[in-house]
Structure formats: structure tokens, C-alpha cells
Amino acid sequence: MRYVFKKILSSIITLFIVSLLVFVAFALIPGDPALSRLGTNATESALASLRHQMGLDKPLMVRYFIWLGSALRGDFGTSYSYSMSVTSMIADKLPITVTLMIYSLLLMIVISVPLGVYASYKEGTLIDRIIQIINQIVMAIPPFFSGILITLFFGMILRIFTPGGFVSISKNAVGFFGFMFFPSLAIALPKSAMVLNLLYSSLNGEKKKDYVRTAYSRGNRSKTVFFGHMLKNASIPTITFLGMALADIIAGSIIIEQVFGIPGLGRILLTSIQNRDYPVVIAIIMLVAVVVIICNLAVDIIYRIVDPRVEENT
């Protein structure tokens, strides 16, 4: 418990440092938000009054703490280009992107773990080699391309789903999850190939360990040695990788939302960057940071449950 508490504390500190860095970085980017909002023909007095209204005339650190104070209350300010609250802009898009992420993560685990375990269990057989070859090919495909291929194959040829036919969850829940399966698959496929490969090679590495020989010497069945002894040991590096892969999934989802025409955070992020709509960009970056840090926290805690030796090294 003390360990979890300490990890949470250090995560919160990390989050504050990230928020400071992000805020300062965007404040230092050349360009005047007031000017871009009013256009180049605006009068100096109009600009000054808008700057005052937006709080841009205050010192940087004061602005940071004002922003931080309202952000902690869930208020990320007002969008420069849409003049509406950032929080309400993000609020209805966030569930879509989060669904996409969790969906991808689940698919990734469902695809990679059984196949990796099976291939290693059948090491050296034909089926193992076939899995390996397909895996190598899939690993080399970037998410946007797998997205295009999936649209082409499932959407245009098999006509299982309608490309671009996004339905919101409130209208048709079944349709929503049915549609989301394909973009999630596009994100998950290349990553699952990596997880599969990692799990496969760590399982094969475990086979040569001394404790496996001990397990055989006690009369275990091969299956028990494999599932009862090796799997837990081999899962340790895989868990670490899953944590890192999650951060990658977020990046992947931004691109995939474009490919599949999903109105998620990715689209807002892209347009806000183009419009220099910094409050929106900062808010999304902070959200991503929160997700990544929570994932890392979860990985650290799971890691400790799986591997009793972790305590020593921390």
C-alpha cells in the first residue's frame, strides 16, 4: 500500500511538471493570439483590451497559476477560434477517443497473447513458422496503412461496415461498437505483432532457464511447466511493453480518426494546432499526459504484483 501511495504521489508531481512545461512552451511560441483572433486590421486599443480580457498582459507565472487553478476545477479556458468553453468542446469527443483506445488495447491483448503463447508452445513446428511469417508482415504495416487496407477489404469488398459511416453511441450503441471495431483493429494490429514477438521470444528465453529444468525434474507435464511456471515469468517484460504501447495507441488513434472519419479528439487537436487555438491544444495534451501517466502507474502496480523482486530495486 505504501508503495502504491508513493507511486501516486510521484505521478502527481510528474503531472504538475508536465503542465508547467506545456504551458510555458506554448506561451513562448511566437505569435499573438489576440492578433490572430481579431485579424491584422484590428486597432491597437482593441488588441490591448482583448489581451487584457484574455489575461495575456499578466506575467507568465501568474497566468500559469490562474490557468492551473481553473484547470483543477475542470475549466480549461475558452477556445480562441470558437469562443466556447474548451471543456465542453472536449467533453463529448473524449468518450469516443477513450473507447477507441480501450478497444484497441483489448484487441491487442486478445490477438497477441494467445497467438504468442501458442507459437512458443509449438516452437519449431510449421504452425509456429506460419505465425512468425504473418507476424513479420503485420509488424511492418503502419496503423494508417492498415486502416486503409481494412477500409478497402472489410468496407469496400466485403461490405461489412460503411466507411465513414460513424454513428454516435446515443443513437445506436450496437452500430457504434460495430463500427469502432475496425479502426481499433487498425491501431491494434501492428502493435499486437510487436507484443506477440516480445512474448514469444521471452517465453522461448525462459525455456532455457534452470528453474524450468527443476520443474521438469519434479515430474511436471510439459503443459504445467509452460503455463504454471514460465508464463508468469515471461509476462514481466510484456507488461512493461504494454504500458509503452498505450502511449503509442493514443498517437495512432489521432491518425486513425482521420482515416475513418471519426469525430474524436484527434480531429479537434489537428484543427486547433492549425488555428493556433492554444487553450484547446494544451487541454488535449494534458489529457493525453494524464492517460499516459495513469497507464504507467497501472503498469508499475501490476508489475509489482507479478514480480516479487521489484521491491528490491525501487
Binding site: 532457464k209 528453474y211 527443476t214 515430474g219 511436471n220 508468469k232
Partner: peptide
């Protein structure tokens, strides 16, 4: 053979740390 191993014939090894499963 499995019926004999661990029951009638047992073996211990040189390096006890690596011969024990670290996560059990």
C-alpha cells in the same frame, strides 16, 4: 518417466537461485 521424476528420483542443482522459480 514423469511418474518417477520428483517422486522416486530427485535432483538438486549447482545454482539454487536460478533453479528456483523467482516469481513463486
Amino acid at each position: 518417466l514423469r511418474q518417477l521424476q520428483g517422486d522416486e528420483i530427485c535432483i538438486i542443482f549447482q545454482e539454487p537461485l536460478t533453479s528456483l522459480n523467482p516469481v513463486k
